[in-house]
């Protein structure tokens, strides 16, 4: 499968990249390429221009201080997966990075690219020949969604591994744009609109991920059939932090693979927080959480199965985090 033709530029600065991105409607950003190039070969993305970011060395770092952890958007997943500092102090981040694709995907893929990956759908991530069996779907520029044929909504699914882990830790992101820099909570990056999953404005580029100090426990669990290569059927990140009186101060449950963005089960979090920690609460938390996710038939796995596994996975995770 050949790539469609495009112009190619390597901006020297982030500012320049933002400018070029803003000024060219058909421009897209390239980091590791493991997501973008597949979509281009499938002709679901046909950019006029590719803005390659990898020449920006300043965005490749992992630093940690009193104020928290900073990871540059161009840091590779492999660097994150193998960072001794992360493994020691922020293991969930390293753990999530280890779960992405396989070794080569991790050495190519970047944190920024992973967070900004396209949503997925079994009607979208296919070749032109495959898609040619029916008129184009909503996400590929057509008028129908084949997942839910009635209505005018795209149900494509967010399948990233890094986002749930970072959202559970309360991560913030820094974005460079035409009007300078802005920060927002990572979870606000996701619109939950399958057609346009990211809340980035014209010309905006994800620059850095900031994680505030986290003294609690965190865990990332991914469910897939084979132990490599695959995207999550469902995955989840947990974070729990207690105060001095052993009361839960923060409790976060964030899923991937079961919605058009990472899904935080906020009502389930409340039940968890309210405690007490026992089998019954765990059941209740899981029961509530699966109500808050909205898996659709966007992959080869059924929504019912995803829901079932989300519950099982959450119960496992809750048990693990306390053991």
């Amino acid at each position: 499968m050949r790539l469609p033709a495009f112009d190619y530029i390597e901006p020297k600065t982030l500012k320049e990249a933002a400018k070029r991105l803003a000024s060219n409607k058909g421009a897209v950003l390239l980091a590791g390429g493991t997501d973008l190039l597949v979509n281009m070969k499938h002709r679901v993305i046909m950019p006029k221009q590719i803005i390659h970011l990898k020449a920006l060395p300043k965005l490749q770092y992992i630093t940690s201080g009193k104020e928290g952890l900073k990871i540059g958007a161009l840091t590779t997943l492999h660097e994150i997966a193998t960072s001794p500092m992360l493994k020691e102090r922020w293991n969930i981040i390293a753990q999530a990075a280890q779960e992405v694709g396989a070794y080569a995907h991790q050495s190519m893929g970047t944190l920024g690219g992973n967070l900004c990956q396209e949503n997925r759908c079994r009607f979208f991530n296919q070749s032109p020949f495959w898609r040619g069996v029916r008129p184009p779907c909503l996400k590929a520029g057509g008028k129908v969604c084949y997942v839910v044929p009635k209505g005018n909504k795209c149900y494509s699914t967010y399948c990233g591994d890094m986002a749930p882990a970072l959202i559970a830790l309360g991560a913030q992101i820094k974005i460079e744009g035409m009007e300078g820099e802005r920060s927002l909570p990572l979870k606000k990056l996701y619109t939950h609109n399958g057609k346009k999953p990211l809340a980035l404005k014209k010309g905006e580029i994800l620059k850095e991920v900031f994680v505030p100090p986290a003294s609690g426990k965190a865990l990332y669990l991914k469910w897939r059939v084979r132990e490599s290569l695959e995207f999550p059927i469902v995955s989840l990140a947990l974070y729990v932090e207690k105060d001095q009186k052993d009361q839960i101060k923060k409790a976060r449950i964030v899923f991937s693979g079961v919605g058009s963005g990472p899904v935080e089960a906020t009502l389930a979090e409340r039940i968890w927080k309210a405690g007490p920690l026992n089998e019954q609460t765990i059941e209740k938390v899981a029961e509530q959480a699966v109500k808050e996710i909205s898996p659709m038939r966007t992959s080869i796995h059924s929504p019912a199965y995803k829901r079932k596994m989300a519950g099982i996975l959450l119960k496992e995770a809750l048990k693990q985090i306390y053991s």
Partner: peptide, 16 residues
């Protein structure tokens, strides 16, 4: 229509 015509969706065992 084959809905999993790729190594990503067709479960060829990996070394794992």
């Amino acid at each position: 229509q084959v809905i999993n015509p790729s190594f990503l969706d067709y479960g060829l065992p990996t070394a794992m």
